[in-house]
Structure formats: structure tokens, C-alpha cells
């Protein structure tokens, strides 16, 4: 699919991938694509940055997203005794029995063994989330009307601005940017 994306739009997708990797993420989402187009060396990138959607500011929001999901993962790693208690499972009792059988600290050791498996280096091709894939497909379709038929950063940006309930949209909202206004400006500049 990405073979049909060339030029600055392709570089935007590559920047998105590099950014995901930098955060140790195994996927490319709309939020990474937004980072990618924000850094575009063309008119569309210029409009985004003039409106405050700069790579630096998107990067800050990406970091915040990662922090939030990491703290959820950490909560899981720590074994949430409080949550288990709500379904009538007494973690202290389970821990006591497990450690009796497998030794002191065995339940925590099993958790560490599991998380080291999850922390493999992020290499090779990253998975593209369903929503990001849909965005790329839509931008390719939108570009079919163009003479060259290749999506530009404009198509990609417009699709990202249009998708509701995406991480990209919530980043824009946090930055205080109106997606419809930004779309209108980009469409007007085409």
C-alpha cells in the first residue's frame, strides 16, 4: 500500500515510523502520521506549523500518550491487588501459597520473566493500526483524481484531520487546534 505513496508524503510516513520506533512502540497510528505531516517540507507542513501543529508540540503529546499507556502497563506488572479484591480474589493469599510452592519472590519473578519477553527491540516493519491504514487508503483514493494519482501530504493531512475519535484528533484538541478550520485552510491553499 505504501508503495503508492511517494515524495514528501512518503517521507511523512517514514518520519511517522521513525517516531513510533523512537518511543519503542510496535505500531504506526494516526498520531504518528500527524507527526510525520507536521514535519513536511512543503506548503501543507507550513500551514500546520503556522497553526501550532509543529513536530515538537506533537512529539510532546506523543510522549504524554506513551506515558499514560505505560502507567497502565506498569499497574498490570505490579499486580493490581485492589482490582483483584473487587472480584473476591485475595492477592496476599494467592502470593503466600505460590511462594510456599515456588519460593520467596517467585510471583514477581514470573512477572519479570513475562515483561522481558514483551520488551524486544523494535526493528523491521512496524504494524500499521487499522485506523492509520484506513487513513492511508483514503488518501490514496482521494489522490486518484490528481493527474499523477499519487497522494500528497495535503491528502494525508486532510484525512487525518477528518478522522473522528483518533489519537491524532485528540492531540489536535489538546493543542487547541480546530481540525475543520485547519482542513479548510489546507483545501483553500491547494
Amino acid at each position: 500500500m505504501t508503495r503508492r505513496i511517494e515524495g514528501e508524503a512518503r517521507r511523512a510516513v517514514i518520519r511517522a515510523q521513525e517516531q513510533a520506533r523512537r518511543f519503542g512502540q510496535h505500531f504506526i497510528g494516526c498520531e504518528h502520521l500527524l507527526y510525520g505531516v507536521a514535519g513536511a517540507d512543503d506548503a501543507v507542513g507550513g500551514i500546520l506549523r503556522a497553526r501550532g501543529v509543529t513536530p515538537e508540540r506533537v512529539d510532546e503529546q506523543l510522549a504524554a500518550l506513551v506515558r499514560r499507556s505505560r502507567s497502565a502497563a506498569a499497574r498490570q506488572r505490579d499486580l493490581d491487588g485492589e482490582a483483584l479484591d473487587t472480584i473476591g480474589v485475595d492477592l496476599d493469599a494467592v502470593r503466600a501459597r505460590v511462594e510456599q510452592a515456588f519460593g520467596p519472590g517467585s510471583l514477581d519473578r514470573a512477572g519479570a520473566a513475562r515483561s522481558s519477553r514483551a520488551k524486544r527491540d523494535v526493528t523491521g516493519h512496524l504494524r500499521v493500526t487499522r485506523q492509520a491504514r484506513a487513513c492511508l487508503k483514503r488518501s490514496i483514493r482521494a489522490a486518484e483524481a490528481r493527474p499523477d494519482g499519487r497522494p500528497d501530504t495535503a491528502e494525508l493531512a486532510l484525512v487525518l484531520l477528518d478522522v473522528r475519535a483518533s489519537a491524532a484528533r485528540s492531540i489536535l484538541a489538546t493543542l487547541g487546534v480546530s481540525a475543520p478550520e485547519l482542513s479548510a485552510e489546507i483545501s483553500g491553499a491547494l
Binding site: Q76, D80, A83, L107, A110, G111, A113
Partner: peptide, 18 residues
């Protein structure tokens, strides 16, 4: 409810490892 499910799953995974 979902936190309880996640915690129970993590607990089950660790017991599986051991």
C-alpha cells in the same frame, strides 16, 4: 470491572509461567 479482568489475566499468566 476491566481492571479486575486485566489483573486476573496477569495473575493467570504468572501462574502459567511458574
Amino acid at each position: 470491572g476491566l481492571r479486575a479482568v486485566a489483573a486476573l489475566r496477569e495473575l493467570a499468566e504468572r501462574l502459567e509461567v511458574l
